[in-house]
Simulated assay, not measured.
Amino acid sequence: MLIGVPKEIKNHEYRVGMTPASVNELIQHGHQVIVETQAGAGIGFSDADYQAVGANISSSAAEVFAAAEMIVKVKEPQAVERAMLREDQLLFTYLHLAPDPEQTHDLIKSGAVCVAYETVTSPRGGLPLLAPMSEVAGRMAIQAGALALEKSKGGRGVLLGGVPGVGPAKVTVIGGGMVGRNAAQMAVGMGADVTILDRNIDVLRAIDAEYHGQLKTVYSTTSSIEQHVLEADLVIGGVLLPGAAAPKLITKDLVKGMKAGSAIVDVAIDQGGCAETSKATTHQDPIYIVDDVVHYCVANMPGGVARTSTMALNNATLPYIITLANKGYKQALLDDEHLRNGLNVMHGKLTCAEVGEALNIDTVEPLELLA
């Protein structure tokens, strides 16, 4: 198979779909790889590095899309990229379609086969291709929140860990999944007063056992969210419904009642955000203020630490890329129900029920199309 790796074009996005090491693995399996020039330059992977392992370097994204049977990316294809997709071409990347009707309709129109990292599942029930970026985003959320609390950014002027004689900041983490746990780990390490909320009591038991009283666990209800958001200096939104739009757990009225200068870091923004006041921002212009509350809603947070993120993501995606290339997408998807769960769009049809529900679009069972 001929695999194409275009350069990412989203604002301040320096990650790359495949590292030279990953390309080398594909070539060792007998495949060809074409990489757009400078695709990895932002994180220290030169064209020469890719050529050294056998990749061909293309002068433009258009050449990559025109030649490749499978496109491997990191972020969702932008409008100019979607226009280059063709019938039966395989796209393997993050999509986050539920809050993005324009992208969804473009992908349906293209006739391409679109497998989304974020809805591939594992036999243990996890999301193995979302997990590494959730780890990064959760850890970055505390860094971003600490900066947002600085007075120069519009924040309260509060240090997360406090100092002797001055108490620490109160951090409320909504969601005890991969994002929430990693955010809590960083916040506890910095000495903050941390409360984490989740609706799964087994998750809360596991977190409580792990931290031995270093943080507080609270069952998530409308009332408990309201209480702990209003008390917080920093709120981390880490909720996730796989494939679906994020629930709006922080209402506009609740934001109005928050402390002046407090901050929300909405890590759920890729799926539309869990605060009614959230809107996607970029690394170039990451924050805005609503009702004296600082909002950080960067939709590609892990792109801020692009080298670490790329390598972590490749560790997870490479086995799937090899499988898709070795077997072809039809056989690979038929053989593996967990990879098949990643199929969102195929041959002009939407195949992800959660996206269909969010956007009011009819869906088709993947097996119907694959058969």
Rank of each mutant, 00 (worst) to 15 (best):
I142S: 01
G138K: 07
V158H: 10
V194G: 00
V218S: 09
Y219L: 15
A232F: 12
G213Q: 06
I174W: 11
E135F: 01
I207A: 08
G191T: 04
G138C: 04
I196A: 08
I201R: 13
Q227S: 12
K216C: 12
V179M: 00
E135I: 03
G145E: 10
Q143L: 11
V203M: 06
A192R: 03
L230I: 12
G176C: 08
M140T: 07
K216L: 14
G167V: 11
L159Q: 04
V218F: 11
Y219K: 14
A187E: 02
D208A: 15
I225C: 10
G145T: 12
I236G: 02
D202V: 15
M186Q: 12
D198V: 06
N200K: 14
V158I: 10
V218K: 08
R156Y: 04
E210Q: 15
D208G: 08
D233A: 05
N200W: 10
L160W: 00
G162I: 02
E210T: 13
L149D: 06
T221W: 11
P168W: 05
R156T: 09
M186S: 08
R139N: 11
A187S: 00
G177R: 03
S220R: 14
E226C: 14
V166W: 08
E210A: 14
N182K: 06
K153C: 01
L160C: 08
L234R: 07
V136I: 13
G161H: 09
L147I: 12
G237P: 09
S223T: 15
V173C: 03
L149F: 10
V235W: 05
A169V: 00
G238F: 04
T172S: 01
G238R: 04
M140Y: 02
L230K: 13
Q214K: 13
M178P: 04
E135N: 11
A141M: 08
E150S: 07
L234K: 06
L149S: 05
I201Y: 13
E210S: 13
N200M: 09
I225V: 14
I142T: 03
G138A: 03
S223Q: 15
G191W: 04
M190R: 03
M178W: 14
L230N: 01
